[in-house]
Nucleic acid binder design. Structure first.
Lengths: 130, 130
DNA sequence: TATTGTATACGAAACACTTCGTATATAGAT
DNA sequence: ATCTATATACGAAGTGTTTCGTATACAATA
C-alpha cells in the first residue's frame, strides 16, 4: 500500500536525488541538495531527515560499511501518483480535467509532449467506447 | 502576485467551501467542514484558522454586523494554478507531460472531458506551429 | 598508541499548523 | 436591568518538520 505515504517537502527533495542518482551516501545527497539553487543545508540536517525516512521505510540502508549507503525504497511513479491523487482532491476536488486544462494552459509543453498526450487520449477513447 | 500564496491544507478546505458557497459566516463554514466525511472540528478551531487567513489576506471580512461574514479574497483558478506550479516542480521536477500521463492514466475521465482536453491540445498545436 | 578526519546517533530548539479552553462582548428575551 | 445564547479574541498546548550542536565511534596515519 503505497497510498498512505506522504513524504514531506524535504523528504521529497531527497527522494528526487536518490531516484536520479541511485544509491548514495548522506554526503552525496547533501552535496546534491546544496548544488541545487541557493540552498545551504547542513550535513547533519540531511542525515537526520534520511534517518527519519529510514524509520518511515522510505529508504533502505546498507550499513555493512562504515559509510552507510541509502536507496529509495519507494518507486518514483508510485509516489508521484499517490501525491497527485492527494493534490487532485485537495486543490481540484477531484476534477482531473480541470487540472489538465490548467496544466496544459499554463505550462509550455513541447509539440512532442502534446502529441504524446493526444496519443494517450486516443488510446483511452478506444478502450472505453462509452 | 498570487504566486507566493501557499494556503495550508486546512486553509484550502475553507477556501473550497467559500468558493462553492460564497460569503459565509464562521458557523456556516464550520458546519460545512463537519458535513464532509467523518471529521469533527470545533467551532473555535475554524474561527482561529479563518482569523489567520484574514491576517494573511486570504479572506475578506465584513464585520459591520456582530456576526462577521467572510469572503474568499483569492480566486479559485489563481490559487489552483499557483499550487499546481509548486506541485509540478516538487513532485515532477517540472515535467508537465509526465504529470499529464499519470493524471489521464490513473483517473477515470469521462469521454466528454477527454474530448475537451483534446480540443485544447489541438488549439495549442495550431497556435504554436513549431 | 595517539591524533586527526569523518561517520552516525542523539537530543533539543525553532518554526508553523492545528486544536481548543477560556475570556469577553453583545443582542435579544424576560 | 438581568439572564441566556452565541459571537469573536486571545493564548497556550499538541504535533510534525527542519535545523543543527554535540557526543560518540572508528579508520587511517603518523
Amino acid at each position: 500500500m503505497t497510498n498512505n505515504i506522504q513524504p514531506t517537502q524535504g523528504e521529497l527533495e531527497i527522494l528526487q536525488i536518490l531516484w536520479k542518482k541511485g544509491p548514495s551516501t548522506v554526503r552525496e545527497v547533501n552535496e546534491a541538495l546544496n548544488d541545487d539553487q541557493d540552498k545551504s543545508i547542513g550535513y547533519t540536517t540531511t542525515l537526520k531527515i534520511m534517518q527519519i525516512m529510514f524509520e518511515k521505510a522510505l529508504l533502505e540502508r546498507n550499513d555493512s560499511q562504515r559509510t552507510h549507503v541509502f536507496t529509495a525504497k519507494v518507486r518514483e511513479g508510485n509516489i508521484q501518483s499517490a501525491l497527485l491523487d492527494r493534490f487532485l482532491n485537495a486543490a481540484y476536488k477531484g476534477s482531473a480535467s480541470k487540472l489538465a486544462m490548467h496544466l496544459l494552459g499554463n505550462h509550455k509543453t513541447t509539440p512532442d509532449e502534446l502529441a504524446e498526450i493526444k496519443a494517450l487520449i486516443d488510446k483511452l477513447e478506444k478502450n472505453k467506447p462509452s
